[in-house]
């Protein structure tokens, strides 16, 4: 039931393969977080197919979220949606649903930056205040920290994202999506059985890193059949995770912040968590990792970031609600932070 003194924001996430709807109170209580993932028959995400999936499930997921939150649509105060960055067709599907809902209910619409939402939900869920954040997912790999009105990017991938690198390798190795088990998790399980470190490229360029060469080398070694698959998975993870950890440590040393936050889909990886906790400890910083339910793309993070933005004067008029496929975090004002 809607509590009389409470206001609710419904958030819609649809940047890639997941369509998610979350409901957050203005005080930051997540009362619903429902999603449906599109699983390709083979290969990676086909944007149009994913968008078709989103359109098909939108109704059902919205209904489920409201039911879970135990409120009616008229109880909503605002609608937030993921405005970018992401895949065009997927983003547009979510934005269309959001616009329709907001105008039907005649309530404000708030466009949210997907990457910032990953950071904000991590902060909310772990009680972190001002962290150096490593955000790693299928589409993003970046180290950010807040400074002077914006989240600044201290390091990022020069080419492919970490999750993408791991997923492509996993598919090349013939690993399959199992129920409730993402490809990355299957790779992690194999990697845990690896013993021998196969030499693979380690490419850190200043604060940035490059993963495409590593992926090519790992895939080539796989095709040669010269190494055990377990050893390759292990070596791929060790190299890639060491690279992102090194870059994160550089940002930590540079900013001298006292918190490290790991967020995004790859945050669920235990080995990556353990590497980051080592550097956090060395720099007397507190290490936090986003809980699994908020690690992958989800509607709750959009709802909560929508609340933060709206309560600090941000609204998105419908005629400015076009999606931004390549919307960088340092282009977004975050008036809720000082």
């Amino acid at each position: 039931m809607k509590r009389a003194d409470e206001q609710y924001c419904l958030g819609i996430e649809s940047t890639a393969d997941d369509f998610g709807v979350g409901v957050s109170t203005f005080k930051g209580e997540i009362v619903a977080n429902v999603s449906s993932g599109y699983i390709p028959e083979e290969g990676g995400i086909h944007p149009r197919e994913a968008a078709r999936h989103h359109a098909e499930v939108a109704d059902k997921i919205l209904e489920e979220a409201l039911k879970k939150a135990d409120i009616k649509s008229k109880d909503l105060a605002i609608i937030a949606f993921s405005q970018g960055p992401g895949l065009g067709p997927c983003l547009r599907t979510g934005a269309t649903v959001a616009r329709a809902l907001a105008s039907y209910l005649n309530i404000p619409l708030v466009g949210v930056n997907h990457s910032i939402a990953h950071i904000e939900i991590g902060k909310l869920a772990t009680g972190t205040q001002d962290p150096v954040t490593l955000y790693v997912s299928g589409g993003n790999t970046m180290v950010t920290a807040y400074d002077c009105g914006r989240y600044r990017v201290f390091g990022e991938t020069l080419d492919i994202a970490l999750g993408n690198c791991l997923d492509v390798f996993a598919r090349e190795a013939g690993l399959k999506h199992k129920k409730g088990l993402p490809l990355g998790a299957a790779l992690e399980q194999l990697a845990a059985k690896g013993k021998k470190l196969v030499p693979l490229p380690y490419v850190v360029k200043g604060m940035d890193l490059s993963l495409s060469g590593l992926l090519t080398a790992a895939t080539t070694a796989l095709r040669n059949g010269s190494c055990r698959l377990e050893d390759l998975c292990y070596s791929l993870q060790e190299n890639a995770f060491s690279m992102v950890t090194e870059v994160t440590e550089r940002a930590l040393a540079h900013t001298e912040k006292k918190e490290v936050l790991l967020t995004g889909g790859v945050a669920a990886n235990r080995r990556l968590q353990s590497m980051l906790s080592v550097i956090a400890e060395e720099h007397d910083a507190r290490f936090s990792v986003v809980p699994r339910e908020f690690a992958t793309d989800n509607g709750a993070m959009i709802a909560w970031t929508g609340v933060l933005a709206y309560t600090h004067g941000v609204v998105t008029p419908v005629d400015e609600s076009f999606v931004k496929l390549r919307w960088r975090v340092e282009k977004v004002d975050v008036p809720w932070l000082k």
Binding site: P85, G139, M142, L158, A161, L325, R326, R328
Partner: peptide, 11 residues
């Protein structure tokens, strides 16, 4: 060219 290769660089 390097910037375009990176992630999300429309601006």
């Amino acid at each position: 060219e390097i910037e375009r290769r990176g992630r999300y660089v429309a601006e």
